[in-house]
């Protein structure tokens, strides 16, 4: 029996080592793709530029509209496309400091409109489907019934999604990003949130929290289930959990070795 257990223990030890190596590789790739590559890309940012036609940065008040094609053009400091991972990767393109910021709107009154711009960069080597989804995570007084959301492609003006927050909640809006030789597609989204002037007093002192999500759906015909919503998808959280697990494993191995040494000493 003792021999059997010893044998089992050895097999388990090997398994632990193999899994630890795999986890370390996965973790390294994750950190590399999510943090190191964008940093390198930013560092090499002088190599190319990306033009966003008909595109005006919103004012502080957030009220902005598309330009007329002459004055609205701006050039953003670009990102080199020389470093591209093979797996589809999404990142917020940090060409404009005013972009990619979350909404934080207080004291909204009927007639108010807030605008944010999001610059999404997808690294992909084949046709992929970019999915947008709005998820209401908290609301009072059913504010989501009267807060209108319009998501448009800031470059083409095509409307991707339109409705109230409660209407678009957890619905996927898809755009196909065709493969290209650069293996990079930049998509610029304008998200407008507004409240109609007809909204009454019932919605005073109401609050709504929502997540805006973009992800690549690689499944054909949209059959793949979307990622779960909420905090479970936060990349930082993943990294922290993975790091904690690694730490735990090292502690476990250390404790085990220490116990073995103690037992060896006792046996002697």
């Amino acid at each position: 029996m003792g021999k059997n257990l010893n044998k089992k223990s050895s097999v388990l030890k090997i398994l632990i080592i193999v899994l630890s190596v795999l986890l370390a590789i996965s973790l390294s790739l994750l950190v590399g793709v999510k943090y190191v590559l964008p940093a390198i890309s930013s560092w090499l940012g002088d190599e190319t530029t990306v033009t966003v036609p008909n595109y005006i940065t919103p004012s502080v008040d957030g009220d902005a509209s598309n330009g007329d094609g002459t004055s609205g053009n701006q050039q953003l400091a670009g990102v080199s496309s020389t470093v591209q991972p093979t797996a589809p990767v999404l990142e917020f393109y940090q060409g404009n400091a005013e972009h990619n910021r979350r909404f934080e709107v207080r004291n909204m009154v009927p007639g108010d409109k807030e605008v944010r711009y999001y610059d999404i960069r997808a690294h992909h080597s084949k046709d992929v489907t970019l999915v947008f989804r709005g998820v209401v995570t908290e609301q009072t007084r059913n504010l989501g019934d009267v807060l209108d959301v319009v998501v448009t492609n800031a470059e083409t003006g095509a409307v991707l999604c339109e409705g109230t927050f409660n209407e678009i909640h957890e619905i996927e809006f898809r755009t196909v990003l065709p493969a290209n030789s650069d293996k990079v597609t930049d998509t610029f989204y304008k998200v407008e949130v507004s409240m109609d002037t007809s909204v009454g007093n019932d919605y005073q002192v109401a609050r709504l929290l929502a997540d805006l999500q973009w992800y690549i759906d690689e499944g054909s015909e949209g059959l793949d289930p979307p990622p779960q919503t909420g905090d479970s998808t936060q990349i930082v959280l993943w990294v922290v959990i993975a790091g904690s697990a690694m730490l735990l494993i090292f502690i476990l191995l250390f404790t085990r070795r220490k116990n073995e040494e103690e037992e060896a000493e006792t046996d002697e």
Binding site: E104, V105, L143, M195, Q204, V205, L212
Partner: peptide
């Protein structure tokens, strides 16, 4: 978990806040 996070290609702008007056 880490493999999923690596391949999921997911972006999220969390906790967008709207409060009425």
């Amino acid at each position: 978990v880490t493999t999923y996070a690596f391949v999921s290609a997911f972006l999220s702008v969390e906790d967008n806040l709207f409060e009425t007056a």
